[in-house]
């Protein structure tokens, strides 16, 4: 009788520990996702500065500037879903890269203090964004390990916690690794 009770108590305790561990891992993922949002907003705040800095020089790329301003407004729209938001943010990354490439044709603009300072801030926010995505992926890995490994997967099944997907790092952030992996054939 007593032995039965002790075993039951231990099982309950184990369940509570695993349940709490899963909840804290899930919250960690949400927290990490929120920090990506902070840096996305920080980047979006730089867009008007970028447009102002380059518009005096770029006469042929007016459409490109109009598009990025439009994308910024879309990104701030609360009504769009998370998948659409990711698509908009990817388009912003793409447009920014195009503008940066176009700047190469204007040496005066490239050399101006104002633009150089802006470029530094953009580099910074892009790298912070990359770091927050990596932090998100690390917390998703931690969460998925919990959801899939035994015996925590039983608790996960009971409270309907499912595997989460990681962020796929876009190509431009992979550029941070300046040494290419060596492939042996």
């Amino acid at each position: 009788m007593w032995i039965g009770l002790i075993i039951f108590g231990c099982l309950i305790l184990l369940f509570v520990i695993m349940f709490n561990s899963l909840v804290s891992r899930k919250n960690q993922v949400e927290n990490a996702f929120a920090s990506i949002d902070v840096y996305l907003k920080k980047r979006a705040d730089q867009i008007p500065n970028l447009v102002n800095a380059v518009k005096g020089y770029m006469n042929h790329e007016k459409a490109m500037l109009a598009q990025i301003t439009k994308l910024r407004t879309e990104a701030f729209d609360n009504k769009i879903g998370s998948n659409e938001r990711v698509a908009v943010e990817n388009k912003i990354t793409d447009s920014m890269n195009k503008i940066m490439l176009a700047v190469e044709a204007y040496p005066d603009l490239k050399a101006s203090d104002n633009f150089m300072q802006l470029q530094r801030s953009l580099n910074e926010v892009e790298e912070q964004l990359a770091a927050s995505r990596r932090a998100f992926n690390a917390s998703v890995t931690d969460y998925n390990n919990g959801v899939e490994s035994f015996p925590m997967n039983i608790v996960a099944l009971m409270i309907a916690y499912k595997r989460k997907n990681m962020f796929v790092i876009p190509m431009e952030f992979r550029g941070q690794t300046d040494e290419r992996p060596k492939i042996k054939l």
């Binding site: 990490a32 920090s35 840096y39 790298e127 912070q128 990359a130 770091a131 927050s132 990596r134 932090a135 992926n137 690390a138 917390s139 941070q176 690794t177 300046d178 040494e179």
Partner: peptide, 27 residues
């Protein structure tokens, strides 16, 4: 961190998960 060789050689502690990765880039 995501680099397994680095993880084997070092242990990293940080007050901010994002900042630690902002400093410790893959490069």
């Amino acid at each position: 961190l995501e680099n397994p060789d680095f993880e084997k050689a070092f242990v990293v502690y940080g007050s901010d998960q994002v900042e630690a990765r902002y400093i410790l880039t893959p490069a």
